[in-house]
Design a protein around this nucleic acid. Structure first.
Length: 257
DNA sequence: ATGCCCTTTACGAAAGGA
C-alpha cells in the first residue's frame, strides 16, 4: 500500500499537476491540505476518472482538507471532537478509514506570530487534536498526516538563527507535537531526494527551493501497527519543480502489504 | 539546471501564508 500527504496550496490552481502526479505516483490514499474550495467546488469528477473516491471538507477561500482513496473511504468525519475554532469552526481536519487504516488529513493553524491570538489558537488546536487522537489510539491502525506548521527540531529548518522569535520553532509548539507522539504515534521521517534534510516546504521567494533552504513542517505520524510496515518514505521534491508548483512537496510512504 | 512569491475574491488591492 502507498499513501501520501500534500499541501497543494489550492486544489483548483494545482489540478493539472495533481492529476499528472496521481497518474504517475499512484498512491492508494492521498491526504490533501489547503484545498481552498468548498465541497461542491472540489474536482471530484476529475480525480474520479483516475479511480479515486473523495471526502472533502472545505470552506471556500481558506483552509480546506480532503482525502482521496482508491481502496475505499468509510466512516468519514469532518473535524474532530472538541476542535476549537477562531471562533467559528475552520476546515482543518478530516478523517476516514481506507485500507484498514484511519487516515487524518490535517492543516494546523499557522499561528502568525508568538504574540498573536492565532498562536494561542494553534496551541489549543494541537492540544484538542491530541485529546481526540488519544481517545481512539487503541481503536486500530492510525495515520495522522498533513501540514503541522511546526518544525519539530532545529535540524528541520534551514537556519535556526533566522527563526528566532518566529512561530513554527517555539518550545510550546514542539512540546505540543511531542505530546501528540506521546499517546503512541511515531514520526515517519521521509528521506530527502537531495541534501541531508527532508524539507517539505520552501518559500516561493528568493529562489529558496533552488538553494534548498526549506523547512520540514509536513509530517506523517502513525501508530506502531503502521510504522512497522513502512518500507520507504520519501519527500517527492520533483513535484516542487517546474512551472506552477505548490510551495510544499508531497511525502510518499510505502507499506508492506 | 529545479531558477528568483502565490492564491483568493473580485476587477484593485488586501489578506494570508510560514
Amino acid at each position: 500500500m502507498r499513501f501520501a500527504t500534500w499541501n497543494v496550496n489550492s486544489v483548483k490552481a494545482r489540478l493539472p499537476r495533481l492529476l499528472e502526479w496521481l497518474d504517475t505516483t499512484k498512491p492508494d490514499v492521498l491526504c490533501l491540505q489547503e484545498t481552498k474550495v468548498a465541497e461542491d467546488g472540489f474536482p471530484t469528477a476529475e480525480v474520479g476518472e483516475l479511480g479515486y473516491d473523495v471526502a472533502a471538507y472545505g470552506q471556500g477561500r481558506w483552509n480546506g482538507v480532503a482525502l482521496l482513496s482508491r481502496v475505499g473511504l468509510d466512516e468519514v468525519r469532518k473535524g474532530f471532537a472538541g476542535e476549537p475554532g477562531y471562533p467559528d469552526p475552520e476546515a482543518r481536519a478530516i478523517s476516514a478509514v481506507a485500507g484498514g487504516i484511519r487516515f487524518y488529513s490535517i492543516y494546523v493553524p499557522n499561528g502568525r506570530t508568538p504574540d498573536d491570538p492565532h498562536y494561542t489558537y494553534k496551541l489549543s488546536w494541537l492540544s484538542a487534536l491530541r485529546a481526540a487522537l488519544a481517545a481512539e489510539i487503541d481503536a486500530g491502525p492510525l495515520v495522522v498526516a498533513g501540514d503541522f506548521n511546526v518544525a519539530p527540531t532545529d535540524d528541520d529548518v534551514w537556519d535556526p538563527k533566522v527563526f528566532i522569535g518566529s512561530t513554527h520553532v517555539t518550545p510550546p509548539e514542539r512540546e505540543a507535537l511531542s505530546e501528540i507522539r506521546g499517546i503512541g504515534l511515531r514520526d515517519i521521517v521521509a528521506r530527502p531526494m537531495k541534501g541531508d534534510h527532508p524539507f517539505t516546504y520552501w518559500d516561493y521567494r528568493a529562489g529558496m527551493f533552488h538553494k534548498n533552504l526549506g523547512m520540514r513542517i509536513d509530517l506523517v505520524y502513525a501508530t506502531g501497527s503502521v510504522a512497522d510496515r513502512v518500507t520507504d518514505a520519501v519527500v517527492d521534491r520533483e513535484a516542487r519543480k517546474g512551472k506552477g508548483p505548490s510551495d510544499h512537496a508531497p511525502i510518499v510512504v510505502d507499506l508492506d502489504g
